[in-house]
Design a protein around this nucleic acid. Structure first.
Lengths: 185, 185
DNA sequence: CGCCCTATTATACGACCGTATAATTATTGC
DNA sequence: GCAATAATTATACGGTCGTATAATAGGGCG
């Protein structure tokens, strides 16, 4: 059902998605989805939770395969971020629904805060490890905030209009930023 | 009328905004707004155009007041970006509506491409001027893409959840990035 | 003044939506 | 095996939406 919600959000956006559409997409009656979920907000909230976990698992897997080096892990993180299934216009459409409700729905706001906190903590840990590896001092908090914003912005803008810059270019920009982190103060 | 649309989008989001709501907000009959606009998509498109021009004018004004130095202009750009009225959750809500329709509506996609192209061109020119000022070589295209994404990401994430990091912190991160541009390769 | 074009409204129709309620089917525990 | 509980559907009601259509008001112009 939450998979059906994700499909609906990807296809029609938040404005074009209704409880009835989700029911049809899931192949059940509208009454059933309302038996399990309060309404659209609840449905989107659970979809956010599930999607957030999926993405975290995907990134964790890529990091595990990258070995122990913080630098390699950071680059693997970037590489995974700018490749399908993460770099996907459909996923952006779903995410836009999350963002849209983050402002107004307290439940979704809480989920958003948790998802992004985990995201940033992961990056901050890797950046701190990178500093140790290279024996340099880095403002880990600000750097993690910056990298999160940079990745989010590149991801968003590429998905919105892939003609402006390629996925490879986005990854190159992020890689270069990490390289600059090693050298610059 | 497009002001009424912006207010509706800010208050209720795209999903909660209808032709009838815009009409009520503007104090006219629903038939009238449909006499001037084809529907919601058309309404949002014109709002995008108008809002984009407003923001560009606001930034231009700040740049003019910053003097001729490219470095000062870049920092003024950042400072303006992370202060009201640009740093505003209501503006983000409106912008989320734009982004949401960029994927599906060709007209809005075109407006989006034009707005962001202008945005990036402005940054790229300032970065090129900065390189000349300091007599260094900078990959202006990639740097402009990076700065655009960084600013977009910081702006988005701060508006979504201001508790995570302050506006001053966002500005500091961006300022630091520009400083790094001067030093780092 | 009278005419035409535009702006504006009023009204109406069919479609869809959220939601509630009662009925029906399946599942589980004893 | 049967009762209790959960899952699932069917149906119905009121509200809102987009949209079309006809009617009304207004304003420039010959």
């Amino acid at each position: 059902m939450i998979e059906a919600t994700a499909r609906c959000l990807a296809r029609d956006g938040l404005a074009g998605t209704s409880v009835r559409h989700v029911a049809a997409e899931a192949g059940v009656s509208p009454g059933l989805v309302r038996h399990h979920f309060e309404g659209m907000q609840d449905l989107v909230a659970e979809t956010y939770r599930a999607t957030g976990k999926q993405i975290a698992a995907l990134l964790d897997e890529a990091l595990a395969a990258a070995g122990p080096s913080a630098e390699a892990r950071l680059h693997a993180f970037i590489e995974t971020s700018f490749k399908p299934p993460l770099l996907d216009a459909d996923l952006l459409a779903v995410w836009l629904a999350f963002w849209s409700l983050t402002r107004t729905d307290p439940q979704i706001h809480a989920i958003h805060a948790k998802v992004y906190a985990g995201y940033r903590r992961l990056l901050e840990e890797m950046i701190a490890a990178l500093a140790r590896e290279h024996g340099i001092a880095i403002e880990t908090r600000q750097s993690a905030l910056a990298l999160t914003a940079l990745l989010d912005g590149l991801w968003l803008e590429h998905c919105l209009d892939p003609k402006t810059f390629s996925a490879a270019e986005a990854a190159a920009i992020a890689h270069r930023w990490v390289d600059g982190l090693k050298k610059g103060s």
